[in-house]
């Protein structure tokens, strides 16, 4: 199997067929539909202290949502490219990771070991979760 990502200095070469790119292009929409992915994208910083949590939320405002939206926009812009920067490769890593969290929420995955019984033929969501795991792992392998 051809490696989907190879590093060339400060760039990453992307080798994905058009069908795979079409699937990846749907991730921003998938994330927009999934909201906070069953709470997996809105963790509390001070879970034991309501006042401290409110102060933190007031401090950061929408910063995390803004960062994620910027990631998704950059990802959508670059998903058809054959070469991406290391910075964009990190964006890909985060968007793919978020999509995996959203898919896991849809599938009701809550405990370790689920992958032992996972069958990509089980559902489109499980197939995509497995494929994105493969892509993310290969991307990790080429990043510094």
């Amino acid at each position: 199997m051809t490696e989907p990502f190879t590093r060339r200095g400060a760039e990453v070469r992307v080798r994905l067929d058009p069908e795979a790119r079409d699937v990846l292009a749907t991730l921003p929409e998938l994330l927009a539909r999934s909201g906070n992915a069953g709470g997996r994208l809105t963790y509390r910083v001070h879970p034991e202290d309501t006042a401290a949590e409110e102060r933190y939320r007031d401090l950061v405002g929408d910063a995390l949502d803004d960062l994620r939206n910027a990631d998704r926009t950059a990802f959508a812009r670059g998903v058809g490219e054959s070469t991406i920067s290391l910075e964009d490769a990190e964006v890909w890593m985060r968007v793919i990771g978020e999509a995996r969290l959203a898919l896991a929420a849809m599938l009701g995955i809550e405990k370790d070991g689920w992958e032992n019984d996972a069958d990509p033929r089980q559902s489109p969501e499980m197939a995509l979760l497995s494929y994105l795991g493969y892509l993310q792992d290969r991307l990790v392998s080429v990043l510094p």
């Binding site: 890593m93 990771g97 896991a104 070991g113 993310q136 792992d137 990790v140």
Partner: peptide
């Protein structure tokens, strides 16, 4: 711990 994030990804995040 969460059941979804890859071990290799978590290591990469800690390093980065």
């Amino acid at each position: 711990n969460d059941p979804v994030n890859l071990m290799s990804y978590v290591v990469w995040v800690f390093r980065k």
